[in-house]
Amino acid sequence: MRNPVFTGSGVAIITPFTDNGIDFEKLEELIEFQIKEGTDALIICGSTGEASTLPDDEHKSAIKFAVDKVNKRIPVIAGTGSNDTKHAVHLTEYAESVGADAILSVTPYYNKTTQKGLYEHFKIIANSVKVPVILYNVPSRTNLNIDPQTVKALSEIENITAIKECNLNQVGEIINLCGDSFSVYSGNDDQVLPLLALGGKGVISVMANIIPKDTHDLVATFMSGDIATSRKIQLRLLDLVKALFVEVSPIPIKAAMNLMGMNVGKCRLPLVDMSEKNFKYLQDTLKQYGLI
């Protein structure tokens, strides 16, 4: 029986930028905030962390910084995915070498591949390291789905232990095929409770950047058997989640954090500032939730 890398709320943490690079002082502040508020795992250099705009030197430095600052208080999961298998292996090996507890690897995007190609891609990545590998299936961004039968085949590789799944329609089939020792995490903040009800282990979350305690409690109350409270939390945050995804993420979450006084800077191009209309909608929603 393989133990999950974590159970609960994993924050897909943003990367704060200055004009000259990563704002490490701010990143440390955000890491401490997350740990203080009960976040169960930290995911560095994911989609929310704008990994696609990080050159390798920044990508590596962010992973090492997070590992060093967290210092084993909670698991650190490093985003090391790429649409180039060799490049993904390089980043994955580096993450393991500096002490990451697991890696998160997204499906190849743009060039894409077949289901056989997915199997070979992830197999090579997993075989390059000993740390757990979490697959990341997000068809809305990659235009490529990992079919449940492919997940099943990959789950038979010893250190491929979990998936961050954004396609709720296939979660039940994945759990039926792979069993309870293979962990499924929600990739959608508005569908955490339904995924938990099917047997999921938690969420890798965008909203946890601003409501870490609520996100942790959403999962923890469900796991403790208090489904009514978990349901209440999930329903309460739906309007907030809608606002946080009114434009391409992480544009709104960074805007929200800045509105809350966290001063995390802007997104990197090609991501731009929110439209005036959507910014006002986000601001009003944050007020309604009691965050500003």
Rank of each mutant, 00 (worst) to 15 (best):
R2A: 09
T7D: 07
T7P: 03
T7H: 07
G8E: 01
S9Q: 01
G10D: 02
V11K: 08
V11R: 00
A12F: 00
T15V: 12
T15P: 13
P16W: 10
T18C: 14
D19R: 07
E25Y: 15
E29S: 13
L30S: 02
I31T: 03
I31Q: 06
I35F: 14
K36F: 09
K36M: 11
G38C: 06
G38Y: 09
D40G: 05
L42V: 09
T53N: 12
D57Q: 08
K64H: 05
F65T: 10
V67T: 05
N71G: 08
I77S: 08
I77V: 06
A78N: 04
T80V: 02
K86T: 06
T92E: 01
Y94T: 05
A95C: 01
S97P: 02
S97Q: 05
V98I: 10
L104R: 01
T113V: 09
Q115N: 12
K116Q: 12
G117T: 01
Y119C: 12
E120N: 05
H121F: 15
H121G: 01
K123S: 11
I125R: 06
N127V: 13
K130T: 13
N137A: 09
V138Q: 11
P139F: 15
R141G: 07
N143I: 08
N143T: 11
L144A: 12
I146G: 07
I146V: 15
P148N: 00
Q149R: 03
Q149H: 13
K152C: 12
A153H: 14
L154Q: 00
S155Y: 05
E156A: 15
E158P: 15
N159D: 09
T161P: 03
A162H: 06
E165W: 01
N167H: 13
L168A: 05
L168K: 04
N169R: 15
N169L: 02
V171T: 10
I175H: 01
L177F: 07
C178W: 06
V184A: 11
S186N: 07
S186M: 10
D190F: 09
P194K: 13
K201G: 04
G202P: 12
S205T: 00
M207F: 11
I210L: 09
I211A: 11
H216S: 15
D217S: 12
L218C: 09
A220W: 01
S224H: 02
S224W: 07
I227L: 14
S230C: 11
R231C: 14
I233L: 14
L240W: 01
V241R: 00
L244G: 04
L244P: 02
V248A: 15
S249C: 05
P250F: 11
I251Y: 06
K254E: 00
A255V: 01
M257V: 13
L259M: 08
N263D: 14
N263S: 07
R268I: 10
L269K: 13
L269V: 10
P270I: 04
K277M: 03
Q283Y: 13
T285D: 06
L286W: 09
L286Y: 11
L286F: 03
K287S: 14
K287N: 13
Q288G: 06
Q288R: 09
G290V: 03
G290N: 13
L291Y: 06
